[in-house]
Design a protein around this nucleic acid. Structure first.
Lengths: 345, 345
DNA sequence: CGTTAGCACTCTCACCCATCGAGTGCTAAC
DNA sequence: GTTAGCACTCGATGGGTGAGAGTGCTAACG
């Protein structure tokens, strides 16, 4: 496609993104220094339309981009707009303020994305392919119950109660010895390796027997953690999307919200992105989900392939600033990469 | 007010709650066996209107309740509708499925309320007036940093990193001794009592010196926890509210959502409810917040007065089924009471 | 041959107006 | 006190109209 046509397509898209109104040939000539008359622009607009990149809501209206138009724009016309140094610094600072645990970061990522793009921010926690034990702790609750606290290398903390029999060790001092034993043997273990380690414990010895019982509970927790699909998707700034004029009659948006509540769908989405290592853009009807045909997603994975993977991204109207969104998502996913790396360093 | 008028007010409200349309005298006579003609009903409707309990959108339209009408209905005409035994059992079962920690319960409470009332469910965690230490644990991260894990009796787990100097104890074995010392002295302490206990430690002895340093960090965590306003308000089912026809043009609802994002406002709300021990109903313009004039809140506190207090509730259009909402909120707050009691038993 | 001016044409939007019907409020009779 | 009857009000609906925006086409231009 010739360069002038590209410039005009770009102008149409960028005008439409800000105004949310179909763009006429006149307006283009006036607002963008194209150096040609409106008639010429009209000819080109007609070509772009027959190429499927623009449409017409009706004969006497201006042009607006199609999904294919946005796709072409994203892939060939513009590059992502990187964040300014100031913005980058501010975001890094914010991440420095929260506790050092992946459980907290992903929420902040969603909030940050929402604020920067004035769209909805989405993020999932970095889910490890197999969680590793970092620390085991036992606290006596009463004569029949202990509270188990399990710290994972991934930054998560899990808590559970373990019932104890009469022949188990039940006072805090003994529980401390049990926990000591478990820490000695299970640090850095996963669900799989923990199993074989435990089987070596001596059933005859009381401390070891209790340790084994607790260990089995630990394995159940790890299994649950590993097996859970998308454990949680945090979203923020859905309000921003509500403010877009195309969603004034909230019908379309309600469908989007409903789709977002569907765990299975989110799981698919995350899965589809996790493979690649780049920012993925899903424009309108490119999304297999019918309800999402009026919105676009800009998603990127973060974390360590094969270890822990999460996804961050932005959801907005198809009429969104892809340049800005892609740049922002790229930066945030990069930052999350760094953070997760620290957990494994 | 005479009984027949009450019956008619009740009929208007219950009809309006389901139909969302102004109710005419004819419809009332047909659908509710009132035993009088529509003309008589009209006379009474006019009285109810001059009493301020009903309005008119315009001359030739039916009647709809005012906020005062709903208020009268809630206070004198109907009682709360208790949940069926089956529903109660199902809910109890669900709460049995999640981990035993107040941090999880309040989310489930919001989700449950949303589902049962088909409105938005709100819940805050039970915030203790002063958090109590239940367990301290230290894990070596590297030569310069330890990870501090603090378990509170209230069910919360806090994590922080503690920087260590050269002259501190830094290997895991030593950290275990430090943690042991802290557990020995600080279990059941609050921020206040922990301070005086720590000051008794001997600065000359290395283990005790490190313990003191960690202890100071612990106090900071406790202070933050105690001082935090409403730490979190979890809401679920905002979509249910979006589906109400009065919010078809999403403008009003957007204001509500914006108000809900305001922490300070939520703090006020929670504070206002925490005092009483009953279900509190805030109907439309009774709410001091202008943005909330088109919605109603049904709130109830839970927890132990003077110890840990949280709030659960429902947000819906003023045109909501108060009977059902009040019954449901009452049950859920009662259930949460039981659960929190277990933490202190 | 690409570019441009001119112009007829199309379609939406906003506005007006008449009609319709639901529901009221009043009056007079029961 | 209750009811039938009736005039009246006011929103909703639908058709008609004019203005305006923007197109597509044609013919002239460099």
């Amino acid at each position: 496609m010739d360069l002038r046509s590209q410039a005009i397509l770009r102008a149409v898209i960028e005008e439409y993104v800000t105004s949310a109104q179909p763009v006429g040939s006149q307006a283009l000539v006036e607002r963008y220094g194209l150096g040609v008359s409106s008639a010429t622009v009209r000819n080109i607009l007609a070509e772009l339309e027959s190429a499927g990149l623009l449409t017409h809501p009706h004969t006497s209206a201006g042009r607006m981009p199609t999904d294919a138009g946005y796709r072409f724009y994203v892939e060939t016309i513009v590059d992502a707009a990187p964040l300014s140094a100031v913005e980058q610094l501010m975001i890094r600072h914010q991440f420095g303020q929260v506790e050092f645990a992946s459980e907290h970061w992903f929420r902040l990522a969603a909030t940050t994305l929402a604020g920067l793009t004035r769209s909805a921010g989405l993020a999932t926690p970095a889910k490890p392919s197999a969680a590793h034990i970092r620390r085991v702790d036992l606290v006596a609750v009463n004569e029949r119950m202990a509270s188990l606290i399990l710290v994972l290398r991934e930054g998560a903390i899990k808590q559970a109660t373990v019932p104890l029999d009469e022949d188990d060790a039940i006072d805090q001092a003994t529980l401390n010895r049990v926990a000591g034993l478990l820490n000695e043997h299970l640090v850095d273990a996963t669900a799989t390796t923990a199993g074989s380690t435990l089987s070596k414990l001596d059933e005859g010895e009381p401390i070891q027997r209790t340790a084994r019982k607790v260990g089995e509970r630990i394995i159940r927790i790890l299994d649950d953690y590993d097996a859970a699909a998308v454990e949680e998707v945090f979203s923020d700034g859905l309000l921003n999307v509500m403010e877009a004029p195309e969603f004034a009659q909230s019908d379309k948006l309600r469908q989007v919200f409903t789709a977002l509540e569907n765990r299975a769908y989110l799981g698919e989405l995350v899965g589809s992105v996790a493979g690649s290592s780049r920012v993925r853009v899903l424009i309108g009807a490119e999304n297999p989900r019918e309800e999402m045909h009026h919105v676009s997603l800009v998603l990127a994975p973060y974390g360590r392939p094969g270890r822990a993977l999460g996804v961050v991204g932005v959801l907005g109207p198809t009429r969104m600033s892809y340049r800005h969104a892609i740049g922002t998502v790229r930066f945030v996913s990069g930052l999350m990469n760094e953070l997760v790396d620290h957990l494994y360093a």
